[in-house]
Amino acid sequence: MKTLGIILIVVGILMLVFKGISFTREKEVVDLGPVEINKKEKERVNWPLYAGVVVTIAGVVITFAGNKTR
């Protein structure tokens, strides 16, 4: 459980530092045999600030709860 807690802490801190991720998706617009037209679209996935805080706190709780049970 300690490993899971540490992973959650790291992920939570990364979520606080990086507010979201962006990526480029290539979409096929027209496909007429050998002729193909594609369109590149930039998309962004954002998560709220409290999600990073909740994940970090959950990681801390799991880490310390795992130590107390032994």
Rank of each mutant, 00 (worst) to 15 (best):
I7A: 08
G33I: 08
S22E: 15
M1P: 02
T69P: 00
T56E: 02
I13C: 08
V17D: 05
E28T: 12
G20T: 10
I7G: 01
K42M: 15
R44D: 08
G20D: 06
V11S: 14
V10S: 08
K19C: 00
I6A: 11
M15P: 07
L8T: 04
N38A: 01
I6L: 12
M15L: 14
L49R: 08
L4F: 13
N67Y: 15
L14D: 05
G66C: 08
F64N: 03
K39H: 06
L32M: 13
L4Q: 06
V30W: 09
R25E: 15
P34K: 09
E28M: 11
V61P: 02
R70S: 10
I62G: 03
V10N: 00
N38V: 05
Y50H: 08
I37F: 05
I13F: 07
F23P: 04
Y50F: 10
V45C: 02
V17F: 10
G33Y: 09
I6R: 07
K39V: 07
A58P: 07
V10H: 06
K27P: 00
V35M: 14
N46C: 00
T3G: 07
G66E: 11
I6T: 06
L14P: 01
V45S: 09
N67K: 13
I13K: 05
V30T: 13
G20A: 08
Y50I: 12
V17W: 09
F18L: 09
S22D: 15
K68Q: 03
E41P: 04
E36H: 12
E36W: 02
V17M: 12
P34S: 10
K39Y: 06
D31E: 12
I9W: 01
G52M: 07
I57M: 12
R70E: 09
N67M: 15
D31G: 07
K27T: 13
D31I: 03
G59Y: 01
G33M: 07
N46R: 09
I7H: 03
S22G: 14
E43K: 10
V30I: 12
K40G: 01
T24Q: 09
V29C: 02
L16V: 02
L8M: 15
I62L: 14
L8G: 03
E36R: 13
I6Y: 09
I37T: 03
S22H: 08
L16N: 14
I37Q: 00
V29E: 11
V29G: 00
L4W: 08
V29N: 01
E36D: 05
A51T: 12
V10Q: 01
V61F: 09
G66K: 01
G5M: 02
V45G: 05
T3P: 02
F23H: 10
S22K: 04
G20P: 06
E43I: 11
L4T: 12
L49P: 05
T3W: 03
G52R: 02
K68D: 07
R44T: 15
E28Y: 03
E41M: 13
I21V: 13
E28F: 04
A65Q: 07
L14R: 06
G20C: 10
D31F: 04
R44K: 14
N67L: 15
R70Y: 03
S22P: 00
